[in-house]
Design a protein around this nucleic acid. Structure first.
Lengths: 235, 235
DNA sequence: TGCATAAACCTGTATGACAGGATAAGCTCG
DNA sequence: CGAGCTTATCCTGTCATACAGGTTTATGCA
């Protein structure tokens, strides 16, 4: 078989695209195996080097997973590559932190709504538990942050929308970087406590299946957070 | 220099992470050059093969760009890798089209709001132009679709939030696949015309800087579209 | 000093090799 | 005849080497 021709793009990219098409065309699903590197090399008339680099490209997007001895197998992204891209964009000053928070507010107001509608009892409990842990760990910001992040993630999961869940996952790294700033920028323990209580309220709204109030509280939470970051000089 | 140790992860991934850190640590910005493959190979005590595969990983995320003869240079993602991931997720049945549309509705209601607030006159004109083209090209769905996509993209750009813009870009591929289904699932030209007119209305709301109405129309648009896809059997 | 030319450098791809890891085939023993 | 162990085979991960173009830097001439 010959390899493409048209806009003399990079050979590796072409092969990577072809391998993507291979998955599509053959209807491969998660866990299914790709052909061996050698057979693909022969099939496309390139060296194993090229096939391997193309594999790496797909693996970077977590479209396949590679492990020694085994054939490459189709897999599913957990959103981590998106997080990498986003964090890189922030570092390059192409994206402002405030932009990220605007997106988070928009998205999470919706996940709160959906969670209120779709949550299971167990999910509601889990969400409430993280909120209460935030409160108990009031004196331990680092631990509190982890529960905060887990809290938002749990809500996203309860929204039953994988795209939202993936997005929230993608924001975690940036959250982890900015959270301490927001925490410190609150001027008093009273303010910090109010923030924590907002989480308790949100958990209870979700628990009561109050979709509208859930979204309102989530939006309010982000209003406050956004201001806190702004006052700390984070644009 | 030695390379990591702990959870004996894949060598290439370790190096890729290290190269990411290199960008971070040295404060490299877009356009800045990475060290040569050979020097990195020596520095990390691995072969050029490993460095190249790590480079490919970063290049797949568009964190760097590679071209023959030139050193790898830091670059910025346009969201295309995210699109690949998303489309793959849909193909793997991990994400439902309806989920994507829920996200789009949520996100684009916000871009409409922001666009109404932040648009320049030129942007408003451009948005309106695409809407009017959709109307003129009523008889040519393929061309109409392209203007529809460009319309939404123009709104995202006018929102002045790169994250939103990147997201809308990421959805374009899926939109291109589902758009014709939505178009055909409308039962009459009257319905299709109503859909096009909704775009005209939205353009005018943005033009009038009516943020609230802009968001409402956008939401309404997605309500209708979502129903159209549902009635065509797309979950 | 300005510019053309050559040298040095760098990436893209190919080839061959070899150390494990994984899997399938075969064999042994109950 | 079947279960379990062993071995042969296949495959991936990494390395070394080679060489054909691009690209950048240095050189030397006008």
């Amino acid at each position: 078989m010959s390899r493409a021709n048209s806009p003399d793009r990079d050979t590796v990219s072409e092969i990577a695209a072809a391998l993507g098409r291979h998955i599509e065309t053959n209807g491969l699903m998660v866990g299914d195996k790709m052909p061996s590197e050698l057979s693909l090399a022969e099939q496309y008339g390139v060296s194993r080097t090229v096939i391997r680099e193309a594999f790496r490209s797909l693996a970077a997007l977590q479209m396949i997973s590679l492990s020694p001895g085994k054939r490459a197998s189709v897999s599913l992204s957990n959103g981590e590559p998106v997080a990498r891209i986003l964090e890189h964009s922030v570092r390059m000053d192409a994206v402002a932190i405030q932009d990220v928070y605007d997106v988070r507010r928009t998205v999470e107001a919706r996940t709160a709504t959906l969670a209120a509608i779709r949550r299971t009892d167990k999910e509601a409990e889990n969400i409430a538990w993280h909120a209460s842990q935030m409160k108990s760990l009031f004196h331990d910001p680092a631990a509190g942050m982890e529960h905060d992040i887990a809290f938002h993630h749990a809500i996203a999961r309860a929204s039953r929308n994988k795209v939202f869940e993936m997005m929230i996952t993608s924001f975690e790294g940036i959250t982890r970087e900015t959270w301490p700033v927001g925490w410190r920028s609150r001027n008093s323990d009273a303010e910090r406590l109010a923030m924590v209580d907002l989480h308790m309220d949100l958990a209870s709204a979700i628990s009561q299946r109050d979709a509208i109030r859930s979204a309102e509280i989530m939006s309010q939470h982000f209003d406050v957070s956004t201001r806190a970051l702004l006052s700390a000089g984070i644009r």
